[in-house]
Simulated assay, not measured.
Amino acid sequence: MENCTNVTNATCVDGDSGQGYVLNTRRKVMLSIDILMFIIGFFGNGSVIFITLRHRGLRTVPNLLITNLAFGDLMFIMSVVFINILYPLLPGVHLYMFHFCEFFYFVQFLSLGVSVFTLTALSVDRYTTVAYPMHKQRIARRLTIWTVVIIWFISIAVCCPWFTLINDNSCWFNKSISSAIYLISLMMLMYIAPTIIMIVCYFLTAKRLLHKNASLNLDPRGGNKQQKKRSRLAVIVLVMTIAFILCSTLVYVWFLTAYFSPFNRFVTNQVVKETKSLLNKINSVINPIILYLMSTTYRRYFLQHFCFFLKCSNGKRERGIITQTQPSTNGTDLARQSTRLVNVPLREGMAPIKEEDSRI
Rank of each mutant, 00 (worst) to 15 (best):
E2T: 15
D14R: 06
D14Y: 06
V22E: 09
T25A: 06
T25F: 14
M30W: 07
M30C: 06
D34H: 01
I39S: 01
F43L: 11
V48Y: 03
V48E: 00
R59C: 00
T67W: 09
T67Q: 08
A70Q: 08
D73T: 11
L74K: 03
M75L: 13
I77G: 00
M78D: 01
V81P: 07
F82A: 09
N84F: 04
I85A: 05
P91D: 07
P91H: 12
H94T: 11
C101N: 08
Y105P: 00
F109K: 00
L110K: 01
S111H: 15
S111G: 13
T118Q: 02
L119W: 15
S123F: 09
V130R: 02
A131L: 03
M134F: 08
K136R: 15
R142V: 12
I145N: 00
W146H: 02
V149A: 02
I154S: 05
C159S: 12
T164Y: 10
L165K: 07
I166R: 04
N167K: 14
N167V: 11
N169S: 14
S176I: 11
I181E: 07
L186E: 03
L189G: 04
L189F: 13
M190E: 05
T195L: 06
F203P: 01
A206G: 10
K207V: 08
L209S: 01
H211F: 14
K212T: 13
K212C: 08
A214T: 10
L218M: 10
L218K: 06
P220I: 08
R221V: 08
R221E: 06
G223K: 07
Q226T: 12
R232S: 04
V235S: 01
I236Y: 09
I236L: 02
M240C: 06
F244T: 03
I245E: 08
V251M: 12
S261N: 12
N264Q: 02
F266H: 05
N269R: 05
Q270I: 15
Q270E: 14
E274S: 11
V285C: 03
V285N: 02
I286W: 12
I286L: 10
M294P: 03
S295V: 13
Q304C: 03
F308R: 00
C312N: 11
S313Y: 15
N314D: 07
N314M: 04
K316A: 02
G320A: 04
I321P: 01
T323G: 05
T329L: 03
N330D: 14
T332V: 02
R336C: 05
V344P: 00
R347C: 08
P352N: 09
I353T: 07
I353W: 05
K354G: 02
E356P: 02
